[in-house]
């Protein structure tokens, strides 16, 4: 993989130039009490003081609300205005942690499963992902148990690793990344050969996700196990909404007068009404069954049907959970039980 060097001053120039060239630049920003991905208008808005952002980077390709098309009703006539694909901006997403970047792989496997969701794919195609290796981790991180690592290049177009002098090692991962580097070639200099590995956070691999995959199918029928696992779970959607690979959605209409639009918005398998039939019958009527669905989807159905794992070990769900449903612990308990 081709390596280059980007000084901190050149990094500032790069971002400033991208903004100047009308790229939509999305970066981790400290807003009020939280750090999240937001569109920036100046380099100074960026922060690097985070383990991971609260919400995942998926919002760039799978925003929490997406207008699918517009319509207008006049008497008995209905006209539809298709999605304006030209409106999707060229974007650069910076400061993406390797776990998050890898999440796009899982997400894409869902949105491209036989029928291609062109809204999602166009958004992702027009986004260049500049990853940022992790130099610190916390008790929630478990990427190394989930086939990732704090310096993994998978999913990024370019991966930056910050050195102790504040400059960055640049790894050019994809053609898209190479193009961006070529477009601003004067900002990148020759690689100094720094040891990337020593700059990375240490994340202990407490289990192997392969063991979860091997075991979880045999647990499906064990109702008592899932009831106990989910006792604490209060059935909100926080875990799914912050997850980089959760793709479940709802489709809703919003209208005012005769005009309106159909919207795709986030939904969660943890919510009790998610699968409720109009008849009142609910195939997943208790939280144990819903929690099972969440884990089975990630560690059984996605591997089986889409050849990908639905978890990247970012630990966001556990951080966001009001009752500390720590997913890594639950994985380990699947292996042990």
């Amino acid at each position: 993989m081709e390596r280059k060097l980007l000084t901190k001053d050149s990094y500032r120039s790069l971002i400033t130039k991208l903004i100047g060239q009308n790229y939509q630049v999305v970066a981790p920003v400290k807003k009020d009490t939280m750090i999240d991905f937001l569109k920036i208008s100046s380099f100074d808005e960026i922060t690097e003081d985070y383990i991971v952002t609260v919400s995942s980077a998926k919002t760039v390709a799978f925003p929490r609300n997406e207008k699918l098309f517009d319509y207008e009703k006049q008497n008995k006539k209905l006209t539809q205005q298709d999605y304006d694909f030209d409106s999707i901006p060229q974007s650069v997403l910076i400061g993406v942690r390797p776990c998050d970047a890898f999440g796009f792989h899982s997400l894409s496997s869902i949105f491209c499963w036989d029928s291609i969701d062109k809204i999602y794919t166009t958004r992702l195609e027009r986004t260049t992902i500049i990853g940022l290796s992790c130099n610190k981790a916390d008790d929630y991180c478990f990427c190394t148990s989930a086939k990732g690592s704090p310096g993994s290049t998978a999913g990024s177009d370019i991966l930056l690793t910050k050195m102790t002098d504040g400059n960055y090692i640049v790894e050019i991962v994809t053609e898209k990344g190479a193009k961006l580097v070529a477009d601003f070639s004067d900002l990148f200099t020759a690689d100094g050969g720094a040891d990337k590995e020593s700059l990375l956070a240490k994340v202990a691999a407490n289990f192997s996700v392969d063991d979860v995959l091997a075991k979880i199918n045999s647990k499906f029928e064990d109702e008592a196990f899932w009831t106990e696992q989910a006792m604490r779970c209060i059935g909100c959607g926080a875990c799914a909404y912050v997850c980089p690979t959760c793709a479940c959605f709802d489709i809703q209409d919003e209208s005012h007068g005769g005009k309106g639009h159909r919207v795709r918005c986030w939904d969660s398998c943890g919510l009790s009404l998610f699968t409720l039939h109009t008849s009142g019958h609910n195939p997943r009527e208790n939280q144990g069954q819903r929690w099972r669905q969440r884990l089975m989807h990630k560690f059984s159905y996605m591997p089986d049907r889409l050849n990908t794992i639905g978890c990247v070990g970012c630990g966001r769900c556990s951080r966001a959970c009001p009752v500390d449903m720590n997913i890594a612990e639950h994985c380990m308990s699947i292996i042990e039980n």
Binding site: D32, D36, I234, S268
Partner: peptide, 12 residues
């Protein structure tokens, strides 16, 4: 504007 409507407030 930041609320993602996860309903954690309601559930807890």
């Amino acid at each position: 504007s930041k609320c993602i409507k996860c309903y954690a407030c309601r559930a807890s």
